[in-house]
């Protein structure tokens, strides 16, 4: 990298000089600048990508927090009702199924 503005000026003068070499140097300079811009954008993109993924995680966490918060704020009756529903689905219904099955009253299966 040039040390001072005058160094940079001298470098640019050489690039736009009349020789074929100057043209090649200019092309290389443009290619280098393009690659630098591309890498900088790619780095930004990596961060943007992480942000996009984190936004989903945040939305998920907020949803979960909301669900838990609502459970926490439930009154006793609501809470009991919720517990009973869960218990019915996960414990009582299977248990009832087993009992009914044992006495031949449970749903037999698809027709």
């Amino acid at each position: 990298m040039p040390e001072t503005p005058s160094d940079e000026l001298e470098r640019l003068r050489r690039l736009v000089g009349p020789s074929e070499r100057s043209y090649e140097d200019l092309r290389a300079d443009v290619a280098g600048a393009r690659e630098a811009a591309r890498e900088a954008l790619a780095e930004t993109g990596r961060l943007r990508g992480e942000l996009a993924e984190m936004r989903v995680e945040l939305a998920r966490a907020r949803q979960d927090q909301d669900t838990l918060q609502r459970r926490r704020e439930m009154g006793v009756v609501e809470h009991l009702g919720d517990l009973v529903r869960e218990a019915w689905r996960e414990v009582l219904r299977p248990l009832a199924g087993r009992v009914l099955g044992a006495v031949g009253l449970r749903r037999p299966g698809p027709r």
């Binding site: 299977p94 248990l95 199924g97 099955g101 449970r106 037999p108 299966g109």
Partner: peptide, 9 residues
């Protein structure tokens, strides 16, 4: 398995 709500298995 024992707790299945469907009988026929």
């Amino acid at each position: 398995v024992d707790g299945q709500t469907l009988a026929d298995w």
